[in-house]
Nucleic acid binder design. Structure first.
Lengths: 160, 160
DNA sequence: GCACTTTCGTTCAGGTTTGAACTACTGACA
DNA sequence: TGTCAGTAGTTCAAACCTGAACGAAAGTGC
């Protein structure tokens, strides 16, 4: 058992500022999307992923991966969105087990509107608040974090 | 209605990297705390806040503010933690409506153990992955974000 | 002292999320 | 061709969260 390497005062300060700022930013952006369009962050991520995929839709499992959601959570999210006619599930010709979620016209339209709100929020609360250099640094830093953090969160991964 | 100011390609890239990296980081850290100690991030935040407050405890409303939680969510969180004997609610002499949550010995011990796990995670997945300069920038950037985002998320705030 | 408004924390109803089972299908191997 | 492990997506029960409504106490103005 190695000695614990605590955070220095500066590291601690930075970490705390980050976790609080980021949490609040996420809450704010989600709150804006929800009150304006009734969309959760998950819903929005799904719409974005679909709009960037091919028109025939995206496999559920791929969608779950893209949006960093568990499969069951995605099932329920897609249920709700299908009920609201924002997307539809279509069978997958090449795999009888599979389904694709595909954007409807309504979903497309809603995303176009919501994206405006969302971009304004991202600008107002983040992009315009940071200098160009800061934003760039944040981007490259978290791209590296994303690479480092283990891809799967299977229980076995946590025991190493 | 003003023209939409979309994000530039670079801004978009930075924003995406950030949201994905940060989300994954949070998920990873929470997952580590949960499998090792059965603590959610909320639980952990409450323990930290209490350990930093006076020994007689902290008012529920202050705790909710510190941990960025709704009051009802805090009520349920504290219920669970009290059931597990990590803290206890004590009446508040100076305000008959109020309660303080105060750490028990067991809560104190658990936090001491969990903090080790948590710090290791923060180091491994963030602090050691970033340069000193990057971490500093992230800290100052999000401190500014925290300042800018409106404090309350009362419905009225969202209509302006 | 008495009405009024505000604040504190909880409770309620209903929606959401979780992780483990489950069904249906696929692909590999004999 | 038949078995069998593995995968896709769903479902289930239980835990969790949300926001509005609530009871109790505090503060305010008269």
């Amino acid at each position: 058992m190695a000695e614990v390497r605590w955070l220095t005062t500066d590291e601690q300060r930075s970490w705390r500022a980050f976790i609080r700022g980021a949490s609040k930013l996420f809450d704010q952006l989600e709150s804006e999307l929800r009150t304006a369009y009734g969309l959760s962050r998950d819903d929005y991520e799904v719409l974005v992923a679909l709009s960037e995929g091919p028109p025939e839709g995206i496999r559920m499992s791929v969608l779950a991966e893209n949006a960093l959601m568990s499969r069951s959570r995605l099932t329920y999210t897609v249920d709700r969105m299908e009920r609201d006619r924002l997307l539809e599930r279509v069978a997958c010709p090449e795999d009888g087990r599979g389904l694709r979620a595909a954007l409807t016209r309504k979903g497309q339209k809603l995303l176009e509107a919501a994206a405006v709100t969302h971009v304004e929020g991202v600008r107002r609360w983040l992009v315009d608040v940071l200098s160009e250099r800061e934003l760039k640094t944040v981007g490259t830093a978290f791209a590296r974090v994303l690479e480092q953090v283990p891809a799967a969160r299977a229980p076995a991964d946590l025991l190493g």
